[in-house]
């Protein structure tokens, strides 16, 4: 573990990512305390530029709502959608991939055809259709993102499991009469945790991007203030009020960047073999 931290700390980018993520996390936790009123409240004049009034440091939107408050409350939504949808897609991808890799044969064939099937449908377009069908809400967005993003998990797991399957300790476990299920959960999965964590951190980033794109297209939950929503709502006034779309865009960029940087840091720290290869 100490070795892990040394390597991770050695990666400057990863540390920067961690700092950004910490800020976003703090914002999402303390937003209700910093901004006690709802981010939907019209607190000031519409179209207030940033820096004009210190009570609304980042300006106001078309209805006079505080952008800073919206950003703080939006952090929670972005992280929530990012984490939950990633967890859901791991829950789909890991069992499928592990089963395909361990059992091989027709199981592998069937499962991989299904995976391929989901990879062939353009994922963002598919997510749009899913959200539209189940009516836009936080839940439908999470489900849609999870449904389109599990295939890489399944593929990764399958590969890892296939390479582990013929190791001595697995064969030993098989000889000792353990069931397939036990071997997968007890022996194999713990050994695949590192690449999965790395992939998951990247997936959180992608999920946040997808959430913002869906909200931008008007398919977000209309009752929650999210970053993508603010950009979408400010888009038509881009020329009069650049700040409405600008700040949430930067927020998304930094958060996504943070997860990618952390992902790389984790990759270096957890997969020394790969890290060396990456130079």
């Amino acid at each position: 573990m100490s070795n892990f931290w040394t390597t991770f700390k050695g990666n400057k980018g990863a540390v920067v990512g961690l700092v950004i993520l910490a800020i976003v996390l703090l914002a999402s936790i303390f937003a209700p305390m910093l901004y006690t009123t709802s981010p939907w409240d019209m607190v000031n004049m519409p179209f207030m530029a940033p820096g004009v009034d210190s009570s609304v440091p980042l300006g106001t939107d078309t209805l006079g709502r505080d952008i800073a408050s919206g950003l703080a409350h939006g952090a929670y939504i972005s992280l929530l959608v990012g984490f939950v949808s990633t967890i859901v897609s791991l829950c789909i991808g890991i069992p499928l991939g592990a089963a395909a890799g361990y059992f091989g044969g027709w199981v592998d064939d069937v499962l991989m055809r299904i995976t391929e099937f989901f990879q062939v449908i353009p994922s963002f377009a598919f997510a749009i259709v899913l959200v539209a069908i189940f009516e836009p809400s936080i839940t439908s967005m999470i489900v849609a993102i999870a449904v389109v993003s599990w295939p890489p998990v399944a593929r990764l797991l399958r590969g890892e499991v296939m390479s582990l399957k013929h190791r001595e300790f697995i064969e030993a476990a098989e000889l000792s009469g353990q069931s397939g299920f036990t071997i997968i959960t007890r022996q194999i999965l713990p050994n695949t945790i590192s690449p999965v964590i790395v992939l998951a951190s990247m997936m959180v980033a992608t999920a946040i991007l997808t959430e913002s794109a869906l909200s931008f297209m008007g398919l977000g939950d209309p009752n929650v203030m999210s970053w993508g929503y603010i950009i979408g709502a400010g888009r038509t006034v881009l020329q009069q009020a650049w700040w409405i779309s600008f700040f949430p865009g930067v927020a998304i960029l930094l958060t996504v960047l943070a997860f990618n940087l952390i992902g790389e840091g984790l990759n270096d720290a957890l997969n020394p073999r790969l890290a060396k290869r990456r130079g």
Binding site: W40, D221, P222, N223
Partner: peptide, 19 residues
């Protein structure tokens, strides 16, 4: 969104349905 805030102010909670 404005109607929702207006109604909320007099004590009528509103949920916007997206469609």
């Amino acid at each position: 969104e404005v109607v929702k805030q207006n109604l909320k102010a007099v004590g009528i909670p509103v949920e916007i349905e997206s469609t």
